[in-house]
Nucleic acid binder design. Structure first.
Length: 267
DNA sequence: ATGACGGAAGTTTTCCGA
């Protein structure tokens, strides 16, 4: 079973690249962020023709998330229950895998997938930064309960937060800057403390592995990037994780997204 | 200190992303 997340920075522009990528990487679930598209414009037919079900939570101009999947999505929930938000940032669903309930761990069959586009935050101290911190607390409060209801859970998406210096091409230059502040990293580690695990760090990874590179100043060519797109798996799933990789291939396309997909494999 | 690039809205510049 393969799950992936990709911030595509406009589905209008990137639809052909998403379809190409799915053709070459037929994952079971793909979480998309930054659709920048309202639901009435969502290309359901194109994904159906490619063999994918799609659940979308769009928004005009900014934000917007979706879950593409080979099997139908069950119990789709949009945004964070209990946290009022006028931005479309989260979509969750359960996906059944295999025919029978999972006898090995006596847990219900199926995996709960949460796809999320975390707020950017713009600049520490700004109103957008305060919104980011409030959103993170809202997410954590909700996930604590979700993990009890759905022990087999994956949280993946564009977190807009680095774990530490290893996730940043220029840690000194980015010290205390957005994506790298102590406040943001505290909240990220608080998610980990709920019983989630960073799939990327479960395995040896190439040095200077990043998931986002600035469009400006030849950021990708010079590997001036940050690892801000993450896949976190719950403790019940951790023993099943067999690989996690960042696919830099689509970043080499013409008119690429500034983010690369991250893929996790589960046995 | 500022802008670089790219997308969206929409018409000419401005906002935002990260």
């Amino acid at each position: 079973m393969k799950l992936a997340t990709w911030n595509i920075n406009s589905l209008t522009v990137r639809l052909p690249q998403v379809l190409d990528w799915l053709g070459a990487n037929p994952v079971d679930v793909l979480a998309l962020q930054e659709l920048k598209m309202s639901d009435d414009k969502f290309p359901h037919a194109a994904f159906a023709a490619a063999g994918y079900h799609a659940s979308c939570f769009g928004q005009k101009t900014y934000n917007g998330v979706a879950l593409l999947s080979k099997t139908p999505a069950d119990n789709v929930v949009r945004n964070i229950p209990g946290f009022g938000d006028d931005m479309a940032r989260v979509i969750s669903a359960t996906f059944a895998f295999g025919a029978a309930p999972d006898a090995a761990d006596n847990l219900p069959n199926g995996i709960r997938v949460v796809g999320a586009y975390f707020p950017n935050g713009q600049e520490p101290g700004s109103d957008k930064f305060e919104y980011k911190l409030a959103w993170l607390k809202g997410l954590r409060s909700w996930l604590r309960t979700e993990l009890l209801v759905h022990p087999k859970l994956v949280l993946m998406g564009d977190f807009n937060i680095t774990f530490d210096d290893a996730d940043v091409w220029d840690p000194e230059g980015m010290r205390d800057q957005i994506h790298c502040t102590d406040e943001e990293r505290y909240e990220l580690n608080a998610l980990i403390a709920l019983g989630l695990h960073d799939a990327h760090r479960l395995f040896p990874q190439p040095a200077k592995s990043y998931s986002w590179w600035d469009y400006r100043d030849f950021g990708f060519r010079r590997n001036h990037g940050m690892r801000i797109d993450h896949i976190l798996v719950s403790g019940a799933l951790r023993p099943r994780v067999t690989a996690c990789r960042i696919d830099k291939t689509p970043r080499k396309n013409e008119r690429p997204s500034d983010h690369a997909p991250v893929v996790v494999e589960l046995a």
